[in-house]
Design a protein around this nucleic acid. Structure first.
Lengths: 189, 189
DNA sequence: AGGGTCCATGAGACCAAGTCCCATCACCGG
DNA sequence: CCGGTGATGGGACTTGGTCTCATGGACCCT
C-alpha cells in the first residue's frame, strides 16, 4: 500500500462529511476524521486551518464571482454585471455533478451553529468582494453595496432551489430569475 | 470587601474590552479576563457561552427589532415598518451614552477574524428575525427577505456613521436616511 | 441572636481544538 | 546506490470549554 495516496485534502473533506452525517459535527473529533482518511491530526491541520473549514474547501467561490463581475463588458451596469457573475458561477462551480454533494453539505451546515457561523462569515466576505469588484467598475459606493446585498440574497434563494431534489434546472438560470424577483420585491413602495 | 460585587457579567465585559484593546483578542486568555474582573474562569463561562460572546452582551437587539416591526400600525407597509423599527432601536438601544462604548467595541471586532465571524452570525440571525416579523405582518416571503436585507444594509451604514466621532446625530435619523439612500441606490436599472 | 437554606462563586479534573517542532520515510535524480 | 526534498507522523503543549462538587456569603425565620 502506497504511503501517499493522492488528494489528501479531498479525502479529509469526504471523510468529514460522512462522519458529520453519521454522528453530527459536535460528536466527531478531528482525529477520527483523519483516521478515516488514513491520515493524522497533523496532516489535517496542515490542509485546513480549523475543523470547520474542512467543509469550505477552496474558497475559490469569491474569486470566481469577482472574476465574473470584472469580465463583464465595461458598459454593463452593476446589476447586470452581478447577474452575469452569478450565471458564470453556475457554469464553472455549481455544476450538475456537484449538486448532490452540495445538498448533503448544506444539510450538515444547517444542523450546526458553529458551521452556520462560518457560513455567515463566508457570505459577508463574498458580499464584500462583490462590492469591491463593482466599485472597481465605477459604481458609487452605496449602489455597489445595495446591488451586492441583493445579489447575495438572490444567490441564497437560487441555491436553495438548485439543491432541492426534482429541480433539474441549472444554477445560472435560477439565479437570474431569483435576482429579477428579488429586485421586483425590493422595489415595493 | 464584599465577596459579591454587583453585575458580574458587566464587569467581565468591561475587563474583556480593556484587555482586548491592550493586548488584542488572541493574546488575552479567559482566565486573565476573569482575574481582572475579580472572578474566575468558572464564573466567566457561567455568564457567557464562549469567549467571543462577552462582547455581544444581551442579544436583546434582535428582540427590539422584532418588537419594533410588530408594533407598527397594521396598514404600514414592510419598508416603513422596518424604518420604524430602526428608529425605535435608536431610541432604546443606540443611545448617545452608548456611543463611545460602541466605537471601542467595534474597533476590537474589526480587528479580529473570530469576532467578525460572530458578528456575521448575529447579523444573519437578526436579518432572519426581521424576515419572520415582516412575514407575520403579511408580507410575501421574497418581499420580506428583500426588505430585511436592505434594512440590514441601512443599519450597517447608519451604525458606521453614528460611531464616527464628530457626528452628533442620533442613530434613528441616520438610519432613516440610510434606508432611503439604499433604496434609491438599489432601484438602479 | 442564632441556625438553616439558597445561590453565586471557586476549585480542579477532564476533553478536544489548535500550535509547534522535529523525526521519518517515500520518491526522485544522479 | 546514495543523498536531497517534501509530505507525513508523533507527541508535547496551550487554551477554550464542560462538568461536578465544594465553599461560603446573604437572607429569612423563629
Amino acid at each position: 500500500m502506497a504511503r501517499w495516496q493522492p488528494d489528501a485534502p479531498g479525502r479529509l473533506a469526504a471523510a468529514a462529511l460522512d462522519l458529520f452525517e453519521e454522528r453530527g459535527y459536535e460528536n466527531t473529533t478531528v482525529i477520527e476524521i483523519a483516521e478515516r482518511a488514513g491520515l493524522t491530526k497533523s496532516t489535517f491541520f496542515r490542509y485546513f486551518p480549523d475543523k470547520r473549514e474542512v467543509l469550505f474547501g477552496g474558497g475559490t467561490v469569491a474569486g470566481l464571482v469577482v472574476e465574473g463581475i470584472a469580465s463583464a463588458p465595461p458598459t454593463t451596469g452593476p446589476l447586470d454585471a452581478a447577474a452575469d457573475a452569478l450565471d458564470a458561477l453556475g457554469r464553472t462551480f455549481f455544476t450538475a455533478d456537484r449538486r448532490e454533494f452540495s445538498g448533503r453539505r448544506q444539510a450538515v451546515l444547517d444542523a450546526n451553529p458553529e458551521l452556520r457561523e462560518r457560513e455567515a462569515l463566508k457570505r459577508i466576505d463574498i458580499t464584500a468582494a462583490m462590492v469591491e469588484a463593482l466599485t472597481l467598475r465605477g459604481a458609487p459606493s452605496l449602489t455597489a453595496r445595495a446591488v451586492a446585498a441583493l445579489a447575495a440574497l438572490a444567490w441564497e434563494v437560487a441555491y436553495d432551489q438548485w439543491i432541492e431534489a426534482g429541480n433539474s434546472e441549472g444554477f445560472g438560470p435560477l439565479a437570474r430569475r431569483a435576482l429579477a424577483d428579488v429586485l421586483a420585491a425590493g422595489a415595493v413602495r
